[in-house]
Design a protein around this nucleic acid. Structure first.
Lengths: 342, 342
DNA sequence: AGATTCGCCCAAACCGTTTTGGATGCTGCA
DNA sequence: TGCAGCATCCAAAACGGTTTGGGCGAATCT
């Protein structure tokens, strides 16, 4: 069942039927009803391929997820971010196109997306400090919103980000207030922008109290349970080990906890840990009382916001690039306590 | 730059250019070279929207991910499965369309996908025992591959699944061989097919040794850290607590571990735990020596296989439904040990 | 009453490809 | 020489919608 057939069945022209269905004003309300009814009756749904060709719009947005060829890690926050974004897309009748590409092919992927015309815009995930994708997308004229920021890029662009620096500054201050002086930072890879901001927040807090940073207490690696464990174990074996940790994710935090418990110590009593909690649906930080003290910011909500900004940008590309800075809340859980006196 | 313009620039008809680019034999090899060169030079890429309309194929496959409205949990294995599948799709020039829908709208979502024609086939995730989507998809004539199976559906359909029953039987036998007699099962929701099969495997092993199952030692809930913790805590508080656990996922296992350590016990010494390990990239089960003893099967690999089967099915829809049963390997880690004598 | 506007509808062009059904000229063979 | 066969190319018709640019009668204005 297509437009033409529906039109002949109704004794109308395709033009009128199209207009009736799309809510144009120049069609009699009675015939509109008639058309609507017939469409429902014959279960007519306009062919998406034809619409896309006719309108020149893809009615779709792309998410390119690069797979690093060395360490093939899929970002675990991805699922929740996409769930949030997808919610918005389907509400606006847009499709979500996922492109999984080896990271060396990423630029080609964006160019192809543009010239083949199968998306109207893209979300950029996991920006680095001077992420080259931003310049590329501007160059090829593809609307985009970055999830995160790229500190070293001055020109304006659209983004949604958590205030990572402030969050980690507050978290560090919280630990300092509890009396901790040796605080280990278990961070993500520091060519990622968010990781750099978090370290900066941590250093800010130390500096504000006149404390020197110790390179041995700062780890930067992939955000897996295993690497969290490795980093914490190393630090705990130091002659002057940390009494508290700051971990960049729940998963890293789980690794830290394992390292702590391997040494027969107890979280929240012997060792304090604060994590950043992305509020992942499958990785909830406890039920009523949080497992970990955490800086929390829902990545799903970030996905929703990013999607909304992008759709807005697609609708009128001339708008100035929108930005949105989300504040993380500090929630107190069972994993922190005052510095135990030795 | 489009076909027509490229054609006039070359002094050829669109027909010939199209054929040259698509490798049809009825075009002179010299002119083909010329066309190819020009296409590269002008960076011409055929418009995907037009191709789709002209060929009637969507060149895309859909993944519908239902969001349960009550518990809004995104399946954490999703990211890795999709990464695997996406790898195959991009190799075959297909797009991956993600549809995030509230689960009560899922049927509509499939129908819409079909009648709007924006995919050629779909992957069905997380089948239940008598999953209604299978009948629906067959009815509307949409090629599909199920990730998992639906035990109560007799008619043939395409699927990729792990041998969950055998995996859990082996895991249980492994614990029994270590001397454990009270083994707690921390399972997923048992309207999910995989969860039922796993319980069956567990029960098989018990029955084979003439052991009675104890309902108090079987939990079934969402697969989150928190619910793993809750289930294990409850069981450990029993008058006759388990000495070993079988957990349906790494994340559940982490919850179990927390419950064990909450009671001051040590994994692998006081309490044994075997998990099912989906080999998620961000949740590796240790590096050289596995953290958990586990039945392992890569969900990413399953994604690759499912994608390949689906593309095959799309290419010739008349083929009999392909199926693939993957065996999990049992890997021995640090989380299991002989029954400590009381 | 005649001119103008308005409400409603339609024919045809268009989007950018693929595909159908020839057309043309050259080669080879009887 | 005549004709079939082949290699190579092309015009035009799809694909299924949207959009442009009217057309036509009835209502409104002057």
């Amino acid at each position: 069942m297509n437009l033409k057939e529906l039109a002949t069945r109704l004794g109308l022209s395709p033009t009128t039927v199209s207009r009736a269905l799309n809510g144009y004003p120049e069609v009699n309300e009675a015939t509109r009803e008639r058309v609507m009814a017939a469409a429902r009756r014959y279960n007519y749904r306009p062919n998406a391929r034809a619409i896309r060709l006719a309108t020149g719009r893809a009615m779709a947005v792309g998410h390119v997820i690069p797979i690093a060829s060395r360490h093939e890690i899929v970002n675990p926050i991805f699922a929740d971010f996409i769930a949030g974004a997808g919610e918005i897309y389907s509400r606006h009748d847009h499709d979500l196109l996922l492109s999984v590409v080896p990271d060396e092919d990423e630029h080609d992927a964006y160019r192809a997306l543009k010239s083949k015309g199968n998306v109207d815009g893209v979300i950029v995930h996991g920006p680095t400090l001077a992420d080259p994708r931003i310049a590329l997308l501007r160059e090829i004229g593809m609307p985009f919103v970055v999830h995160g920021r790229a500190s070293e890029i001055a020109a304006p662009y659209a983004w949604v980000d958590v205030n990572n620096r402030r969050a980690f500054r507050r978290a560090t201050e919280f630990l300092l207030d509890l009396g901790h002086r040796r605080i280990g930072l278990v961070n993500g890879l520091e060519f990622m922008d968010f990781a750099v901001r978090r370290r900066r927040g941590y250093l800010d807090a130390l500096a504000a109290r006149g404390l020197a940073a110790d390179a041995a207490l700062m780890a930067s690696d992939e955000m897996t349970e295993v690497s969290g464990h490795r980093a914490a174990r190393r630090m705990l074996a130091l002659p002057d080990p940390p009494t508290a940790f700051l971990a960049s994710s729940m998963i890293l935090g789980l690794g830290v906890r394992r390292a702590v418990e391997d040494r027969g110590m107890k979280l929240g009593r012997d060792i304090s840990v604060v994590i950043h909690d992305d509020d992942l649906s499958y990785m909830k930080n406890g039920e009523d009382v949080p497992i970990f003290t955490a800086t929390r910011s829902s990545v799903r909500q970030a996905g929703r916001i990013a999607a909304e900004l992008l759709l807005g940008l697609i609708a009128n590309a001339k708008d100035p690039a929108p930005t949105r800075l989300l504040e993380a809340e500090l929630i107190i859980g069972q994993s922190t306590g005052p510095l135990p006196h030795a």
